[in-house]
Design a protein around this nucleic acid. Sequence first.
DNA 1: AAACGTCATTCCACAATATGAGACAAGAAA
DNA 2: TTTCTTGTCTCATATTGTGGAATGACGTTT
Lengths: 268, 268
Amino acid sequence: MPTKIDSNGSNKGQVQSLVKALQLLEILANGGGGLSLKTIAAQSGFPPSTTHRLLSTLQQEKFARFDADSLTWSVGVKTFSIGNAFVRDRDLIQTARPFMKALMETTGETVNLAVQSGDAAVYVAQIESRQMMRAMAAPGTRVPLHCSGIGKAMLAVQSEQERSALLAKTGMRRVTDKTITDMSVMRQAFADALRDGYAIDDEEHAVGLRCVASLIYDENCDPVAGLSLSGPLARIPDNKFQELGKLVCSTAERITREFGGNSPSSQN
Amino acid sequence: MPTKIDSNGSNKGQVQSLVKALQLLEILANGGGGLSLKTIAAQSGFPPSTTHRLLSTLQQEKFARFDADSLTWSVGVKTFSIGNAFVRDRDLIQTARPFMKALMETTGETVNLAVQSGDAAVYVAQIESRQMMRAMAAPGTRVPLHCSGIGKAMLAVQSEQERSALLAKTGMRRVTDKTITDMSVMRQAFADALRDGYAIDDEEHAVGLRCVASLIYDENCDPVAGLSLSGPLARIPDNKFQELGKLVCSTAERITREFGGNSPSSQN
DNA sequence: AAACGTCATTCCACAATATGAGACAAGAAA
DNA sequence: TTTCTTGTCTCATATTGTGGAATGACGTTT
């Protein structure tokens, strides 16, 4: 049989047997528990003999586990313990930056990354818009939770108890005319954010500045940071909120996956 | 060059390229952060070209990550997310059983596995001694923490605060003549257990029954269960405690590793 | 019991595929 | 500049992975 050119796009001089083995690992992970050889072979499309050879090699190195009673295969310890090294080495900012850059390019607006620190959101990275008029917030800047898109997104996913404890500290201080200071209005904002997957900031923090924000999660579905897109009122009319919101949301989800996290909504 | 017979023992018709790739993953995990190609090649003993080819294949599948700025390699997201499937599928009892069996064979005594449930230890698995006279505790049996080897081992690694809360509930009730009811004596027992890595039960729960216990940990260094070996006073004289203790301890550590956990002491 | 079906496992001839020395490229240091 | 060092790519070679088919182990049906 001639060389199989990968049906996808990219197969630059790679090690086929290794690629196959990695595919098998993925099948084991998605299979949930114990899979029989035949199932795995069928699912991968490899002949049983090849499947078996690869699996037993993986097993020998403890990357796969074989249960002799049920004759089923599953993911091995070593995959787990080695995978944990990823957590140790990963770097949210490094991971997020290329995605932030892409988001800035497609929207033209400034993109920010912020983490929660006590009762404030702290900006940790920023990709600036190329526009003359643009939003800026130097990394390290602290912004109250109640009047920033990222802050509101973070509050929205917390329990009522945590929320009120946090808001009690700062007291929902008025910063602009449009800052939300009424608790019932704020509650509605949280509900909207939960429904849409993104929170908005409509000149609540700076006059003329609008912002859309979504969250990035870790492997326990806990939020680790917020991603926001902000620009002048003139370029973000009401009817663009939804479009931008979806963009921010899907970018945040992609960063989450790249970071090894899980969004609370999707189970993948 | 002729076929290289693996310098170790076991090379039964396996996929070499896969084995090599898995070794590389392990090096990435142990390397801590970013390793250069040369370092990895040197550490693995593979020529740079082979190393590079395998790494880029791993990277293409997201099992390895390549940082273009520093030209360094590290463990990729996919290894992590797939490794997490292990946590979902793993089964402590299944994992522990073969080790427990081996421990029973070498010592001849009954081996138990128990988890903490509130203020008691609950036996969840047992391998019975072949001796006529033997210790038995049906799975499901609850034993107070203060008068069992496993319970004392569990208490020993907890904070003073948690300990006193738990002991307050049961009140260190006297069960046999030798049950420890004095708090200062108990504190000394905890100190000994921490020093030795195993706790002992010297007829504190049943007359004539001695027991040595050690802990099994999860990946966060939190104890998930206790492993104990128990037998009649006649077969476990004072001078055998240390020998048996070390055995139980090392068995527990092996189970911990097999379970994907980390002992608080060792960083491996 | 014997015949059949299913599935895991192993074998083996074949050639496709992984291999690694060496060429090349890209920086960094002298 | 030259001279290291280190990463990346090429290519001839035969080692190595491949998958069809045989074997073996069970369980079910006739």
